[in-house]
């Protein structure tokens, strides 16, 4: 289990103990974190699990693939340099304490 914190658009924060090996997206759905819609269920089709990764963590994640990059161009909320799709970030002990912000809309 790895501790991940989600901060909602209204600044509410939710910290969950996420299962290693699953995605951040799945951790959000499993722990009832609203605002991560994940319409495609984690198949990298839809861009509705968009998050902003806190600056300190961006370089610690695997880089954005071409597929994810193309999908991020279609996010409903503004794409920022720290935008990621949470289905593409795998929970692992090295990410203990990761903080991600949830945008105000996903579609």
């Amino acid at each position: 289990m790895t501790t991940i914190t989600f901060i909602h658009a209204d600044n509410r924060s939710q910290t969950v103990e996420a299962e290693d090996g699953a995605s951040i997206m799945l951790a959000a759905l499993t722990h009832g974190v609203d605002g991560i819609v994940a319409e495609c269920g984690g198949n990298a089709v839809c861009a509705t699990c968009h998050v902003y990764v806190e600056e300190a963590w961006t370089t610690k994640l695997d880089p954005v693939t071409d597929d994810e990059d193309a999908l991020l161009d279609g996010t409903a909320a503004e794409r920022l340099p720290n935008s990621r799709l949470s289905c593409q970030i795998k929970v692992q002990p090295a990410l203990a304490g990761l903080v991600v912000r949830i945008p105000d809309r996903q579609s």
Binding site: L29, V37, A38, C40, G41, N43, V45, C46, S107
Partner: peptide, 23 residues
């Protein structure tokens, strides 16, 4: 309902490529 994960559009590499048009 939190409906993410349903297989109405399939799942995996063949999951409906036009699902965004449908939605």
């Amino acid at each position: 309902r939190k409906v993410s994960g349903h297989v109405g559009f399939g799942s995996g590499i063949h999951m409906c490529v036009g699902q965004l048009v449908a939605r």
